[in-house]
Write a protein that binds this DNA or RNA. Sequence first.
DNA 1: CAAGAACCGTACCGTACGGTACTTTGGGAG
DNA 2: CTCCCAAAGTACCGTACGGTACGGTTCTTG
Lengths: 220, 220
Amino acid sequence: MQSASVSESQGMSEFIRDENLTPRQQEVLESALALLVEGGEKALTTAKIASASNCSKESLYKWFGDRDGLISAMMAFQGSKVGAAVGQEDLGSASAFKNYLVRFACELLSVLAGDTSLALNRLAIGQASNDASPLGPLLIENGRGVIETKAVGFLHSAEQKNYLTFADARQTYHVLYGLIVRDIHVRLLLGERREFVMKNFERDAQIAIAQFYQLYGVEE
Amino acid sequence: MQSASVSESQGMSEFIRDENLTPRQQEVLESALALLVEGGEKALTTAKIASASNCSKESLYKWFGDRDGLISAMMAFQGSKVGAAVGQEDLGSASAFKNYLVRFACELLSVLAGDTSLALNRLAIGQASNDASPLGPLLIENGRGVIETKAVGFLHSAEQKNYLTFADARQTYHVLYGLIVRDIHVRLLLGERREFVMKNFERDAQIAIAQFYQLYGVEE
DNA sequence: CAAGAACCGTACCGTACGGTACTTTGGGAG
DNA sequence: CTCCCAAAGTACCGTACGGTACGGTTCTTG
């Protein structure tokens, strides 16, 4: 479903439909991601990618069309791994669900603070001024979208089980997101040290969920 | 104070101390900013800057050292204008203060969503992988820092006047920031359309402040 | 084994950019 | 008027990158 909406929504290049990636191509994308994490966009040259993955530039262009196509493929490839990262929700009881929310918060922070996530976000943001670039929407769809869809789902379920009370699940999720993430994401993107921004982030997650319940929890 | 801490903290290049900018140099920085807003980092070449501001490349290098020095000067220059942007607080009464908070929220969103702010943040984030780049810290100091300092100040005052109740003003400000900004900033940075992300942002600001009072307001 | 495809490694090409040098212009001081 | 200096404009240099072409090597297929 999600891959279909991606490939149809933005008229993605003719290369790399869905998951038709040979293992060799996945290797290349993996080492390209490592290269990006290591040295940023400046280090992501076709020559370096080819050299790092022991592959010829000609193959790169044959498989991915051009540099932008390769970057798009990197994003889609990384995005395909995100889905499984967020654990299964637990709606068994009110307290179990609250515990799950804390775990969700930690998981969300871990994902956002991950090296690969930060590198890809930096890349997409750096290109966002060019409004012909599909990277921003692609990242929103593959990263944010997957998590948001899932979260809206379990918020809705929790509301029906009377663990929470609110009108609009999507809007409520945005508040939850704000309470958890605050300005942490942007500061990490700007290069602030992880230890400095996120000291004791499990405690912060607990506080955020407590405040979330103060806003949307059912009385007593 | 803030300019002193900037020039001393990061060993900024020997050029452009404080505000020793001739009107001509300010013109150049202004048109460079316009160029950046228009076409992103890719459009910010020394040749284009020189051409757009009718100045020679040689003068650029004489005044700013190199391209990075010029970009740093752009950030400092823009940052020097931010201080006046946030209006004067009103602690006259509890309701007046609450109204001021709503105005503050709108102001904050307007600043973050401004073209120049977005362009500079994109530029700094794009370079943040290079951990020798001073742009991230510079932006944090000049933009975020100024607003945060001011906000922490008036939150502290409000707590002493018993309009609000909390333990740590800085921590409380971060919650306020999260409630107001949520993921709006990052989505704008990624290139999402302003009208799509921020439809009816005055109403959103009011909701955010209401929720903030639900968390930190004094009873009755 | 033979034929062909896929692919690696390298060399190559055009372009665009950062940075420098040089010539010309204009305005201010003596 | 003359000298001087700052700055504009232009030409130039080296480099690095995106993209292409080609010879050699491995792997598959009949």
